[in-house]
Computed example of a mutant assay.
Amino acid sequence: MTPPPPDTAPILIVDDMEENLVALEAVLGSLATKVVRARSGEEALKAMLREEFAVVLIDVLMPGMSGFETAANIKGLDQTKDVPVILLTGASVDPDYAYRGYTVGAADFLVKPFDPWLLRTKVNVFLDLYRKNHQLAAQATQLKRLLTGSSETPTSPAEPGRATPPPSEPTPTPTPPPGDDASLADIASRLAQIELLLRDARDTESAGLADRIAALEQAVERLLAGRGA
């Protein structure tokens, strides 16, 4: 499964009725993002193993694999367990449907006919979360490369005719290259960006990670200040 570029943030809609798929496409069309169809739970699972989606909208009442079963299978696979699921059902809904939906891992439950503005708003929340997660992952990968690069000490080849000192001989501390300070400043800047993204997520796990990122940022700034002294 190859992740798409973060700006595409595709949506998967699952319903066995053509008219319902057309209606969903019309409601979601203003979000200017790719919408993929599936006519059954089995087809939806195959699509999700081929492509990464920001959110999945599933009709509850489908022949064969129901919406509940489809959601449970999505949450049971490592490749798809983190994809948010919104379940949709008709007006004559069983009072236990919402409970069953949340039990299988659905993020939300809407009863038809639903307000198009409300559905777009809910879907847009997951699209924004998808983009922020991809942005955070990209920042973390780039930061890792910067940290790895700054920790490597370049080795100079031995001068011709000069013997290599034995292992027991103390090696002088190398002088940091001129670009090191710039690299550390860049790392501090990227740490600050990642911290802001984590603070914006507003959950306990992200807040704790943001605190650790802030501490690392301060350590880099102290290192820069020490070099300037």
Rank of each mutant, 00 (worst) to 15 (best):
A215M: 12
S156K: 04
R202F: 06
P172V: 04
A214L: 12
D15R: 05
A107P: 06
R199F: 12
K122Y: 02
I86Q: 03
V36M: 03
F114V: 04
T2S: 11
T33Y: 01
E25N: 10
I86R: 02
A23R: 14
L57T: 06
T80G: 06
L28R: 03
L223V: 15
A225H: 09
Q79A: 15
V125S: 11
A185Y: 12
K122M: 08
L147K: 12
L61D: 06
A106N: 04
S168F: 12
T175S: 07
D115Y: 00
V104M: 13
V125R: 09
K34T: 13
P178K: 00
D82Q: 11
T89H: 02
P165S: 13
F126L: 04
G228W: 05
E205A: 13
H134S: 15
S66V: 04
Q193N: 08
L216G: 13
A72W: 04
M48T: 10
P84W: 08
K46L: 15
V56K: 08
Y97C: 12
S206H: 09
T171E: 13
A107R: 12
P4E: 09
T33S: 05
L197I: 11
D59E: 07
P154R: 03
K81Q: 13
G179V: 10
R120M: 07
L216S: 14
L12S: 08
A72N: 07
F109Y: 14
P154W: 01
E205V: 10
I86S: 03
A210P: 00
T164L: 13
L77T: 03
E205H: 09
R222I: 15
T141A: 15
P178T: 00
M17S: 11
G105H: 08
P95C: 11
A210C: 01
V36N: 03
P6G: 04
Q79T: 14
A163M: 07
I213Y: 05
P154K: 00
K112N: 14
R120L: 03
L21P: 00
R190D: 05
T153H: 01
Y102S: 06
L197K: 07
R50F: 12
K34D: 09
L143M: 10
Q193K: 10
H134G: 14
A188V: 09
D94F: 06
F68P: 00
L88T: 01
